[in-house]
Measured scan of single mutants.
Amino acid sequence: MSIQHFRVALIPFFAAFCLPVFAHPETLVKVKDAEDQLGARVGYIELDLNSGKILESFRPEERFPMMSTFKVLLCGAVLSRVDAGQEQLGRRIHYSQNDLVEYSPVTEKHLTDGMTVRELCSAAITMSDNTAANLLLTTIGGPKELTAFLHNMGDHVTRLDRWEPELNEAIPNDERDTTMPAAMATTLRKLLTGELLTLASRQQLIDWMEADKVAGPLLRSALPAGWFIADKSGAGERGSRGIIAALGPDGKPSRIVVIYTTGSQATMDERNRQIAEIGASLIKHW
């Protein structure tokens, strides 16, 4: 067993022997301040990774656009098919120029040779490549099948209805392509620590998230040296922004954090800054 596999296998073990965790309302004060600064709703939840206990939450059962955070769930569904012998990570998928959609920095470079399922998941999570996500959605049967996968996990809230990039439209009061912070946090925890996926697939999923290259201005910008984070960000229309993450000190994750916002007129930089400040408060009061 590799060191990384050992780390993920012992996530519940280490967490069980940690000192009790206590909620700190100071972080919620910052979440509410972010709402004021952005002029928009902000949803927040913080779960203990081992027990699933909610440590703090704000608007945990209000719907927010998922945006690209759905790509972690998508690759979880792909990995479940791999575990069941219905898919192979090494299978190569070929596609054409007509398949390319807006923001496809990886797939646009491989029109000639195609990409493997493993490479597509890596591109979808680490670079948020939209064509990679659409190609992977095709392998599982489309958005409705991802929703069905989530329902089978016990998540009857999260739903995907459309493809990239239309799913980022974020129309107010439109339930399409949305989740709730509580539902997303619980589902992410199941994917990373539950028995739904094999140990190898859980490790692969967290490795992809740990290698995320496009979430630097968010929670990662607030992390002290030595902290662990595996995350996936999302951005959408109407001032929408979000991030889902597993993080913790001492090089291992111990909490799940989900943050979503929508309806702001603020710039992307300002949305990023507010999420980073929430992260800084979380870490300060850990």
Rank of each mutant, 00 (worst) to 15 (best):
T107P: 07
I206K: 01
G242L: 05
E35P: 05
L137N: 03
E56R: 09
E195P: 08
Y260G: 10
G234A: 14
A185S: 09
E108D: 03
G85F: 07
G248P: 08
D113M: 11
E145C: 11
R118W: 07
L219R: 12
A132I: 07
V31S: 13
D161I: 02
L49I: 03
I125L: 08
Y44D: 03
I140D: 05
K190R: 11
G226F: 10
S57K: 03
L120T: 04
R159C: 14
I171R: 02
V72G: 03
T198D: 03
L223V: 05
E175A: 04
L150V: 10
A215G: 14
A245Q: 08
I45K: 14
L188D: 15
G85T: 03
R241A: 15
E210M: 13
N134D: 02
R241T: 14
R59V: 04
I243M: 11
L74W: 02
P60M: 05
F58A: 04
G236R: 13
R159A: 13
L55N: 05
M209C: 14
K213F: 06
R118V: 05
P165C: 00
T262L: 03
L100M: 14
V258R: 05
R91Y: 04
L120A: 05
S104I: 11
D269F: 13
S122I: 12
V106G: 07
P181L: 01
N152S: 10
T186A: 08
K190Q: 13
H110E: 01
E237D: 04
E119T: 09
F228D: 15
M66F: 01
L150E: 01
Q97A: 04
H110F: 11
M184H: 12
A133P: 03
T267Q: 10
R59W: 06
L28V: 08
D99S: 09
R238E: 04
A34G: 03
T116K: 01
I244L: 11
L167S: 02
I259G: 08
R273Q: 15
E237T: 00
A77I: 08
E61L: 07
G216P: 15
I93T: 03
F70T: 02
G194P: 09
L150N: 02
L218M: 08
T261N: 13
V72T: 10
Y44P: 02
V42C: 15
A215V: 12
S96T: 07
R92W: 06
L136E: 11
A148N: 06
S104E: 04
A133R: 01
M127W: 07
V214N: 15
Q265W: 11
V101S: 15
F64Y: 11
P60A: 04
T147P: 03
P172S: 04
A132N: 07
I45D: 06
L167N: 00
R176S: 00
L146C: 01
T147Q: 03
G248V: 07
D155R: 08
T186F: 01
A77G: 03
E61N: 03
T193K: 00
S122P: 04
A40E: 10
I93K: 02
A148I: 00
G39D: 11
P165K: 01
G43A: 11
G239E: 01
D113L: 04
S68E: 15
M127L: 11
H151W: 06
T107Q: 04
T139K: 08
K213M: 06
P249S: 09
I283E: 08
S254G: 09
G251R: 11
L28S: 06
L188W: 15
P25A: 00
T186K: 01
E87A: 01
I171V: 01
G279N: 08
N134Q: 01
K190E: 11
Y44I: 09
I125M: 13
T178P: 14
L100V: 09
I243S: 09
N130Y: 09
R189K: 12
